[in-house]
Design a protein around this nucleic acid. Structure first.
Lengths: 142, 142
DNA sequence: CTTACTGCAAAAAGTTTGCACACAC
DNA sequence: GTGTGTGCAAACTTTTTGCAGTAAG
Protein backbone atom coordinates (compact mmCIF):
# COMPACT_ATOMS: atom_id res chain seq x y z
CA UNK A 1 0.00 0.00 0.00
CA UNK A 2 1.37 3.42 -0.90
CA UNK A 3 1.56 6.22 1.60
CA UNK A 4 -1.18 8.24 -0.11
CA UNK A 5 -3.62 5.39 0.29
CA UNK A 6 -2.67 4.94 3.92
CA UNK A 7 -3.15 8.64 4.56
CA UNK A 8 -6.52 8.54 2.84
CA UNK A 9 -7.64 5.63 4.99
CA UNK A 10 -6.50 7.37 8.16
CA UNK A 11 -8.29 10.55 7.16
CA UNK A 12 -11.46 8.62 6.43
CA UNK A 13 -11.35 7.22 9.95
CA UNK A 14 -11.01 10.71 11.40
CA UNK A 15 -7.32 10.55 12.24
CA UNK A 16 -4.96 13.36 11.41
CA UNK A 17 -1.95 13.50 9.14
CA UNK A 18 0.82 14.66 11.43
CA UNK A 19 4.54 14.98 10.93
CA UNK A 20 5.20 12.03 13.27
CA UNK A 21 2.81 9.82 11.35
CA UNK A 22 4.11 10.82 7.94
CA UNK A 23 7.76 10.49 8.91
CA UNK A 24 7.25 7.02 10.37
CA UNK A 25 5.32 5.80 7.37
CA UNK A 26 8.02 7.15 5.08
CA UNK A 27 10.74 5.51 7.12
CA UNK A 28 8.96 2.16 7.08
CA UNK A 29 8.45 2.43 3.37
CA UNK A 30 12.16 2.14 2.73
CA UNK A 31 12.61 -1.60 3.14
CA UNK A 32 13.35 -1.23 6.84
CA UNK A 33 14.44 -4.06 9.14
CA UNK A 34 12.65 -4.44 12.49
CA UNK A 35 14.04 -1.61 14.57
CA UNK A 36 13.51 -0.61 18.18
CA UNK A 37 11.96 2.64 19.33
CA UNK A 38 15.42 4.01 20.03
CA UNK A 39 16.83 3.07 16.64
CA UNK A 40 13.80 4.52 14.90
CA UNK A 41 14.06 7.71 16.88
CA UNK A 42 17.76 8.08 16.07
CA UNK A 43 17.04 7.63 12.38
CA UNK A 44 14.44 10.38 12.53
CA UNK A 45 16.74 12.66 14.49
CA UNK A 46 19.48 12.19 11.90
CA UNK A 47 17.04 13.26 9.24
CA UNK A 48 16.45 16.47 11.14
CA UNK A 49 13.26 15.63 13.05
CA UNK A 50 12.97 16.03 16.79
CA UNK A 51 10.40 13.72 18.33
CA UNK A 52 9.81 12.70 21.90
CA UNK A 53 10.18 9.00 22.63
CA UNK A 54 6.70 8.89 24.13
CA UNK A 55 5.31 10.19 20.88
CA UNK A 56 7.13 7.50 18.96
CA UNK A 57 5.93 4.74 21.26
CA UNK A 58 2.40 6.02 20.98
CA UNK A 59 2.52 6.39 17.25
CA UNK A 60 4.02 2.93 16.75
CA UNK A 61 1.29 1.43 18.93
CA UNK A 62 -1.28 3.35 16.93
CA UNK A 63 0.08 2.23 13.58
CA UNK A 64 0.32 -1.36 14.82
CA UNK A 65 -3.28 -1.16 15.95
CA UNK A 66 -4.34 0.15 12.55
CA UNK A 67 -2.48 -2.71 10.93
CA UNK A 68 0.27 -0.71 9.19
CA UNK A 69 3.08 -1.78 11.48
CA UNK A 70 3.91 -5.15 12.94
CA UNK A 71 5.79 -5.82 16.15
CA UNK A 72 8.38 -8.47 16.75
CA UNK A 73 10.47 -9.59 19.69
CA UNK A 74 13.88 -11.23 19.59
CA UNK A 75 13.86 -12.04 23.27
CA UNK A 76 16.30 -9.29 24.21
CA UNK A 77 13.94 -7.11 26.17
CA UNK A 78 12.77 -4.68 23.55
CA UNK A 79 10.08 -4.58 20.93
CA UNK A 80 10.89 -4.09 17.28
CA UNK A 81 8.72 -2.56 14.63
CA UNK A 82 8.56 -2.87 10.87
CA UNK A 83 6.12 -2.37 8.01
CA UNK A 84 3.21 -4.78 7.80
CA UNK A 85 3.27 -4.54 4.03
CA UNK A 86 6.29 -6.75 3.71
CA UNK A 87 4.03 -9.74 4.19
CA UNK A 88 4.38 -12.42 6.84
CA UNK A 89 8.01 -13.41 7.34
CA UNK A 90 10.53 -14.38 9.97
CA UNK A 91 14.03 -13.23 10.80
CA UNK A 92 17.53 -14.62 10.66
CA UNK A 93 19.46 -12.89 13.41
CA UNK A 94 23.24 -13.16 13.28
CA UNK A 95 24.69 -13.64 16.76
CA UNK A 96 28.05 -12.43 15.50
CA UNK A 97 27.35 -9.14 13.73
CA UNK A 98 23.74 -8.52 14.69
CA UNK A 99 22.60 -8.40 11.09
CA UNK A 100 18.93 -9.19 10.54
CA UNK A 101 17.81 -11.06 7.46
CA UNK A 102 14.30 -11.91 6.39
CA UNK A 103 12.96 -15.28 5.42
CA UNK A 104 9.60 -16.50 4.25
CA UNK A 105 8.81 -19.92 5.64
CA UNK A 106 6.80 -21.84 3.11
CA UNK A 107 3.55 -23.70 3.73
CA UNK A 108 5.12 -26.20 6.10
CA UNK A 109 4.50 -24.08 9.16
CA UNK A 110 0.79 -23.89 8.45
CA UNK A 111 0.63 -27.66 8.28
CA UNK A 112 2.59 -27.93 11.53
CA UNK A 113 0.06 -25.61 13.13
CA UNK A 114 -2.88 -27.60 11.81
CA UNK A 115 -1.42 -30.82 13.12
CA UNK A 116 -0.73 -29.29 16.54
CA UNK A 117 -4.19 -27.75 16.68
CA UNK A 118 -5.81 -31.12 16.23
CA UNK A 119 -3.43 -33.03 18.46
CA UNK A 120 -3.58 -30.52 21.31
CA UNK A 121 -7.12 -29.20 20.87
CA UNK A 122 -5.76 -25.67 20.67
CA UNK A 123 -6.80 -23.05 18.16
CA UNK A 124 -3.60 -21.39 17.00
CA UNK A 125 -4.09 -17.74 16.04
CA UNK A 126 -0.52 -16.52 15.72
CA UNK A 127 3.08 -17.40 16.43
CA UNK A 128 6.51 -16.03 17.13
CA UNK A 129 9.26 -17.62 15.07
CA UNK A 130 12.77 -16.24 14.85
CA UNK A 131 16.03 -17.93 13.93
CA UNK A 132 19.42 -17.25 15.48
CA UNK A 133 22.79 -18.25 14.08
CA UNK A 134 25.69 -17.09 11.95
CA UNK A 135 25.17 -15.22 8.70
CA UNK A 136 27.06 -16.00 5.50
CA UNK A 137 29.35 -13.01 5.82
CA UNK A 138 30.44 -13.99 9.33
CA UNK A 139 30.96 -17.64 8.37
CA UNK A 140 33.47 -16.49 5.74
CA UNK A 141 35.29 -14.20 8.17
CA UNK A 142 35.99 -17.03 10.58
CA UNK B 1 18.65 -35.95 35.63
CA UNK B 2 17.88 -36.30 39.33
CA UNK B 3 18.75 -33.58 41.79
CA UNK B 4 21.50 -35.67 43.44
CA UNK B 5 23.33 -35.98 40.15
CA UNK B 6 22.98 -32.29 39.47
CA UNK B 7 24.33 -31.48 42.91
CA UNK B 8 27.23 -33.86 42.40
CA UNK B 9 28.10 -32.20 39.11
CA UNK B 10 27.93 -28.74 40.64
CA UNK B 11 30.12 -29.81 43.54
CA UNK B 12 32.64 -31.32 41.16
CA UNK B 13 32.91 -27.98 39.42
CA UNK B 14 33.58 -26.22 42.70
CA UNK B 15 30.14 -24.65 43.15
CA UNK B 16 28.29 -24.77 46.43
CA UNK B 17 25.01 -26.36 47.36
CA UNK B 18 22.99 -23.49 48.74
CA UNK B 19 19.39 -23.21 49.81
CA UNK B 20 18.60 -21.00 46.80
CA UNK B 21 20.07 -23.54 44.42
CA UNK B 22 18.40 -26.51 46.02
CA UNK B 23 14.99 -24.85 46.27
CA UNK B 24 15.05 -23.79 42.63
CA UNK B 25 16.11 -27.22 41.41
CA UNK B 26 13.34 -28.79 43.49
CA UNK B 27 10.78 -26.36 42.16
CA UNK B 28 11.81 -27.02 38.58
CA UNK B 29 11.64 -30.72 39.17
CA UNK B 30 7.90 -30.61 39.64
CA UNK B 31 6.76 -30.37 36.04
CA UNK B 32 6.86 -26.60 36.12
CA UNK B 33 5.66 -24.34 33.31
CA UNK B 34 7.91 -21.47 32.22
CA UNK B 35 7.55 -18.92 34.98
CA UNK B 36 8.92 -15.42 35.45
CA UNK B 37 11.30 -14.41 38.21
CA UNK B 38 8.39 -12.91 40.13
CA UNK B 39 6.22 -15.99 39.85
CA UNK B 40 9.09 -18.21 40.89
CA UNK B 41 9.87 -15.99 43.83
CA UNK B 42 6.26 -15.99 44.96
CA UNK B 43 6.15 -19.78 44.81
CA UNK B 44 9.24 -19.96 46.99
CA UNK B 45 7.88 -17.40 49.42
CA UNK B 46 4.67 -19.41 49.76
CA UNK B 47 6.72 -22.43 50.66
CA UNK B 48 8.33 -20.45 53.48
CA UNK B 49 11.56 -19.30 51.86
CA UNK B 50 12.64 -15.68 51.76
CA UNK B 51 14.91 -14.87 48.86
CA UNK B 52 15.93 -11.59 47.34
CA UNK B 53 14.95 -11.08 43.72
CA UNK B 54 18.55 -10.33 42.78
CA UNK B 55 19.56 -13.70 44.14
CA UNK B 56 16.89 -15.40 42.09
CA UNK B 57 17.88 -13.60 38.90
CA UNK B 58 21.50 -14.51 39.52
CA UNK B 59 20.75 -18.10 40.31
CA UNK B 60 18.52 -18.52 37.28
CA UNK B 61 21.22 -17.09 35.07
CA UNK B 62 23.72 -19.42 36.68
CA UNK B 63 21.56 -22.50 36.22
CA UNK B 64 20.83 -21.50 32.63
CA UNK B 65 24.54 -21.12 32.02
CA UNK B 66 25.20 -24.55 33.49
CA UNK B 67 22.50 -25.97 31.24
CA UNK B 68 19.96 -26.95 33.89
CA UNK B 69 17.46 -24.22 33.12
CA UNK B 70 16.24 -22.85 29.82
CA UNK B 71 14.89 -19.40 29.16
CA UNK B 72 11.96 -18.45 26.99
CA UNK B 73 10.29 -15.25 25.97
CA UNK B 74 6.66 -14.75 25.01
CA UNK B 75 7.20 -11.22 23.80
CA UNK B 76 5.60 -9.59 26.84
CA UNK B 77 8.70 -8.02 28.28
CA UNK B 78 9.80 -10.65 30.75
CA UNK B 79 11.91 -13.76 30.65
CA UNK B 80 10.56 -17.12 31.69
CA UNK B 81 12.48 -20.04 33.07
CA UNK B 82 11.86 -23.77 33.16
CA UNK B 83 13.76 -27.01 33.51
CA UNK B 84 16.02 -28.01 30.64
CA UNK B 85 15.31 -31.65 31.32
CA UNK B 86 11.89 -31.51 29.73
CA UNK B 87 13.57 -31.72 26.35
CA UNK B 88 13.20 -29.25 23.51
CA UNK B 89 9.62 -28.10 23.14
CA UNK B 90 7.49 -25.07 22.40
CA UNK B 91 4.50 -23.47 24.06
CA UNK B 92 0.82 -23.00 23.38
CA UNK B 93 -0.18 -19.79 25.12
CA UNK B 94 -3.88 -19.17 25.60
CA UNK B 95 -4.73 -15.51 24.99
CA UNK B 96 -7.95 -15.98 26.94
CA UNK B 97 -6.91 -17.60 30.22
CA UNK B 98 -3.14 -17.36 30.05
CA UNK B 99 -2.70 -21.10 30.36
CA UNK B 100 0.57 -22.44 28.97
CA UNK B 101 0.68 -25.81 27.27
CA UNK B 102 3.69 -27.63 25.90
CA UNK B 103 4.12 -29.09 22.47
CA UNK B 104 6.87 -31.02 20.77
CA UNK B 105 7.19 -30.07 17.14
CA UNK B 106 8.25 -33.07 15.14
CA UNK B 107 11.10 -33.25 12.64
CA UNK B 108 9.51 -30.79 10.21
CA UNK B 109 11.11 -27.81 11.86
CA UNK B 110 14.57 -29.28 11.44
CA UNK B 111 13.96 -29.75 7.74
CA UNK B 112 12.63 -26.19 7.47
CA UNK B 113 15.82 -24.97 9.10
CA UNK B 114 17.99 -27.00 6.76
CA UNK B 115 16.18 -25.66 3.75
CA UNK B 116 16.46 -22.07 4.99
CA UNK B 117 20.12 -22.53 5.86
CA UNK B 118 20.92 -23.56 2.30
CA UNK B 119 18.66 -21.02 0.64
CA UNK B 120 19.85 -18.10 2.75
CA UNK B 121 23.43 -19.15 3.44
CA UNK B 122 22.81 -18.82 7.15
CA UNK B 123 23.87 -21.30 9.78
CA UNK B 124 20.90 -21.65 12.13
CA UNK B 125 21.93 -22.41 15.70
CA UNK B 126 18.70 -21.91 17.60
CA UNK B 127 15.20 -20.53 17.32
CA UNK B 128 12.32 -19.04 19.22
CA UNK B 129 8.97 -20.61 18.41
CA UNK B 130 5.84 -19.99 20.45
CA UNK B 131 2.19 -20.34 19.50
CA UNK B 132 -0.63 -18.10 20.64
CA UNK B 133 -4.34 -18.86 20.46
CA UNK B 134 -7.28 -20.27 22.37
CA UNK B 135 -7.00 -23.41 24.47
CA UNK B 136 -9.56 -26.24 24.42
CA UNK B 137 -11.10 -25.21 27.72
CA UNK B 138 -11.70 -21.65 26.59
CA UNK B 139 -13.13 -22.74 23.22
CA UNK B 140 -15.79 -24.71 25.10
CA UNK B 141 -16.63 -21.83 27.41
CA UNK B 142 -17.45 -19.51 24.52
C1' DC C 1 40.01 -19.74 55.87
C1' DT C 2 38.88 -19.13 51.23
C1' DT C 3 35.81 -17.79 47.71
C1' DA C 4 31.15 -18.70 46.21
C1' DC C 5 26.98 -16.80 47.24
C1' DT C 6 23.56 -13.38 49.20
C1' DG C 7 21.11 -9.09 50.42
C1' DC C 8 20.38 -4.40 49.92
C1' DA C 9 20.12 -0.23 47.66
C1' DA C 10 20.68 1.99 43.65
C1' DA C 11 20.88 2.25 38.76
C1' DA C 12 19.74 0.80 34.04
C1' DA C 13 16.79 0.13 30.24
C1' DG C 14 12.39 -0.15 28.09
C1' DT C 15 7.81 1.29 28.29
C1' DT C 16 3.57 3.67 30.05
C1' DT C 17 0.71 7.38 32.14
C1' DG C 18 -1.27 12.01 33.36
C1' DC C 19 -1.88 16.34 32.19
C1' DA C 20 -1.44 20.74 30.04
C1' DC C 21 -0.61 22.55 25.62
C1' DA C 22 -0.47 22.50 20.34
C1' DC C 23 -1.89 21.53 15.93
C1' DA C 24 -4.85 19.38 12.09
C1' DC C 25 -8.89 20.15 9.86
C1' DG D 1 -13.53 25.51 17.81
C1' DT D 2 -13.21 20.50 18.56
C1' DG D 3 -10.84 16.59 19.22
C1' DT D 4 -6.67 14.32 17.93
C1' DG D 5 -1.82 14.42 18.73
C1' DT D 6 2.48 15.93 21.35
C1' DG D 7 5.94 17.01 24.96
C1' DC D 8 7.49 16.64 29.44
C1' DA D 9 8.13 14.76 33.75
C1' DA D 10 7.29 11.18 36.45
C1' DA D 11 6.05 6.46 37.31
C1' DC D 12 6.36 1.60 36.50
C1' DT D 13 8.39 -2.93 35.28
C1' DT D 14 11.96 -5.98 34.56
C1' DT D 15 16.71 -6.73 35.02
C1' DT D 16 21.58 -5.55 36.37
C1' DT D 17 25.43 -3.81 39.21
C1' DG D 18 28.46 -2.65 43.20
C1' DC D 19 29.72 -3.66 47.46
C1' DA D 20 29.81 -5.18 52.09
C1' DG D 21 28.71 -9.12 54.61
C1' DT D 22 27.49 -14.40 55.08
C1' DA D 23 28.08 -19.12 54.74
C1' DA D 24 29.50 -23.59 52.34
C1' DG D 25 33.32 -26.60 52.06
Amino acid sequence: MEDNKIEAELKRKGFKITKTRVSLLKLFGKNFPPFSQKEIRNKLIKSGLVLNKTTIYRELAFLANEGFVSESDFGDGKKRYESSFKGHHHHLICKECGDIGEVVVKGDLKSIENEIGKRKKFEIKSHILEFFGICGKCIKNN
